[in-house]
Amino acid sequence: MIRRLYRMLPGPTPVRILLSIVIIAGVLVGLHFFYDWLGTIVFDTGGTVG
């Protein structure tokens, strides 16, 4: 699947590699915020009362 997604990227190989890095970084940042939000809802809100 990853190979197929890579082939869908436009441009020559260097551009595709650059785009891949940007997309992966974007996904990781998005996951960080998603995990952070999920963690404070499910795991540990910080223990505040009220």
Binding site: T40, I41, V42, F43, D44, T45, G46, G47, T48, V49
Partner: peptide, 12 residues
């Protein structure tokens, strides 16, 4: 105050 039980925000 803190969350309780561990790995849950159900109680304090």
């Amino acid at each position: 105050t803190t969350c309780h039980p561990k790995f849950s925000a159900r109680q304090r």
